[in-house]
Each structure stands twice: as C-alpha cells, then as structure tokens.
Design a protein around this nucleic acid. Structure first.
Lengths: 163, 163
DNA sequence: CTTGAAACAAAAGAGAA
DNA sequence: TTCTCTTTTGTTTCAAG
C-alpha cells in the first residue's frame, strides 16, 4: 500500500482543482518549498495516482446539447455478450461515459447529443446494430446540480487494502 | 454565437486529453505556430469555453472504494424543496456529482464511499437529515467501462442557438 | 502568421538546518 | 527528511515585422 501523508493528499486536492498551477504556487499552497513538493508530485505521477490532466470544456457554450443517462439491460449475460457490448460503447462517440452495474446484467451510460431526436436515433441505431441491447431506461438531464468533485480522500486513503 | 473553426475544436480536443501540454507542443499538434495558437487559447479561456484544468486522480490506488449511482425522488416538488435538496448535495462530500432529471421530480447522484456499509450509512443520514428525500434507487458500479470522453464537438458546434 | 527577445518557470543538484 | 540557493534548460508572453 502506498503511504500518503496529509501533504500528498493536499497536493492531489489542489491539482484536482487547478491542474495548471505552477509548481512554485503548488508548493506554497501546500506549505512546502519547491524541491520537496516537486519530488512528491513526481512520485504521485509515477505511481499513477495522478493519471493525467484534462481541460474542462463548457459544452453549453459550443451549442445546444442534451445529456442523457441510460440504464441498459442486455439480451443475454454471457461473457462474450458483455465484451461485445463494452467494445461497442468505446465506438459510439456520443457515449461519453459508461459503467457496468451490479446484478451482472446492467450498464449505465452517459450520452451527449445535440437534442432528444438525435438521442432517439442513437438508441435506435444501437438496437439495430445488434450489440446485445435488450431494454433501456432514459433519464434526461435538465440541470447540472453539482459538477464532478473529489470524494473525501482522507476516508478512502489510510486503511488496509490499497495497492 | 461563438465562431470556432476546426483548429479551435482541435485545440479543445488536445487539451481535454492532455491539459498540461506545453503551448509550443499544443501549437505543433494543431498545425499552428506558437503565437496564433496562444491567441486562440487565450480567447477560449476568456470566453469560458475552457472552464479550467483538473488533475485526474486514480481513486483505486488510494484505497478501497465503491461508486454508486442513486436515482432519488423527493417528498414534494415545490421550488423550495428543490432548492433545499440541491443545497444539501453541495454539502455531502461523498456526493461527487449530481444532476436534476426530467419529469420535475428526480435527481441522479454519483456517490463514492469506502464500502457499501458506508454508502448505507450515508443514505440513512440523508433520510434522517430531512432534506426532502423520499425514495431512492441504488445502482452499484462494478466496473468502469468507458472513462469520461468528449462528445463529438463538431456535431454540437456549428448550428444555431449557441451563445 | 512569423520571428525573436525578455521575463518567467521547471528541473536537478549541493549543501545546511 | 525538508529547506534554501543556484544553475541550466525550457516555456510563456508579447512587441514588431
């Protein structure tokens, strides 16, 4: 298990909020000077705890669009079916995220399209593409209430079982 | 509406993938030299199309944790109830994202806790906190199938209605 | 859009607290 | 360990063509 102290956690928190902060500013914010802070950051990146850095794009400023969450059930639940469905998820660009759910039969997809019509056409295309999709339930997003935030890292870290 | 050309879109795509790329490398990747690329980037940031930059943290390396999606229904559907519930969502740190859904009565929450027990305790706490939560449905994530990706920007951009 | 110069930041190391 | 200080190298920013 990787040992992280409060300062490492603080580095993660600052970078999760501002991924382009300079290393000098980062050091100041976590109460270290540049060199030790830089060492810790290098380690966090090397260990893969920091996976990368991403710009956050405001899709609403680009044009009209709609986000839909879809709970999907498959026709059958063989390993091959799961694999085929999961591979399809990678190919549909409108599927912006996907998770497998407990119960062994369901998936949750996040889908972004220009409008509800385009969403329907996408789902029709999925049904026709014979990727194993049997039924699905649609949750249309009307408003983002809370943008992605980090969970409380101190809870998740500092217990047995981590790699 | 903001006019973006293919190079602007390409800048967004590169930065959504690698938010800490240097400006010189970014320019090279999109086929511009440093100064014009820098001008475009400055504009995208100023317009708020680029909202910010975030480090991506691999939670699994920090310790055991479970992600749960929760579809929630409220007791009543007055504007005040919505407001109260949405304010609560900001306060629960384990709620890592939240969206309001169509139908005017439902929310989808993404929750991250250490284990299913902690998830149950959180939901019990929400029920007891009288934040207006009536019923909820639990979807436990067993596997991330597709991490967040950008939707096809060319579809969303380049039509009427954008700001 | 290009060049290029000045200001600034990153990276790595030496040695002291 | 962490800190400060220094040097080299690379990056950002912006003015001028």
């Amino acid at each position: 298990m990787l040992k992280l102290d409060d300062r490492d956690i603080e580095i993660l928190r600052v970078l999760a909020d501002n991924g382009r902060i300079t290393k000098a500013q980062l050091a100041e914010r976590v109460g270290l000077s540049a060199s030790p802070c830089w060492e810790r950051l290098r380690r966090l990146e090397e260990e893969g705890i920091i996976e990368g850095y991403k710009a956050t794009i405001n899709l609403r400023k680009l044009g009209p669009n709609v986000t839909v969450f879809v709970v999907a059930e498959l026709n059958d639940h063989t390993p091959a079916s799961f694999q085929a469905f999961e591979a399809s998820m990678q190919r549909f660009d409108e599927v912006t995220a996907c998770w497998a759910l407990g119960g062994g039969l369901d998936y949750l997809m996040q889908v972004v399209t220009t409008d509800i019509d385009a969403y329907q056409r996408l789902m029709d295309a999925m049904l026709e593409a014979r990727i194993g999709l049997a039924r699905y339930f649609t949750y249309i997003v009307t408003k983002p209430v809370k943008p992605f935030t980090l969970p409380p890292l101190r809870l998740i870290h500092g217990r047995d079982g981590a790699e």
